[in-house]
């Protein structure tokens, strides 16, 4: 097996995730796309860990999984709050930062 096959697949996942983050309007779907990005990173970590024959890659992947769990928890809470305040989770309507 080539190392690159894993890395390219991860890169593809990453880009799909980026597309989702940029183009999706629904807050929950944006969070899902973020998960795609994080998983792409994890695949990279584990693949390099296997390549260098060390467990460190896995250790960091596990840390990323834990952080992803925290991120989803807080992210969904924020989405919920937006929904409660605006009765919608359309992110293109959230533009209070307009200059």
């Amino acid at each position: 097996m080539y190392l690159n096959q894993f890395l390219l697949l991860a890169a593809f996942l990453f880009c799909v995730g980026v597309y989702g983050v940029l183009a999706r309007k629904n807050g929950v779907l944006v969070l899902m796309s973020v998960e795609l990005i994080l998983n792409a990173v994890n695949v990279n970590l584990v693949a390099f860990g296997a390549f260098h024959n060390t467990v460190v890659g896995q250790v960091f992947a596990l840390f990323v999984i834990a952080i992803a769990a925290a991120e989803v928890g807080v992210g969904l809470a924020i989405v919920l709050l937006i929904y409660r305040n605006k009765q919608s989770i359309d992110l293109s309507e959230v533009d209070l930062m307009k200059g």
């Binding site: 983050v21 940029l22 293109s92 533009d95 209070l96 930062m97 307009k98 200059g99």
Partner: peptide, 17 residues
């Protein structure tokens, strides 16, 4: 430059990427 500032985070993210 302020015109670019729509306040929409996703657009900013697009610029960022």
């Amino acid at each position: 430059l302020r015109v670019l500032q729509t306040g929409r985070v996703q657009q900013y993210a697009a610029f960022l990427f």
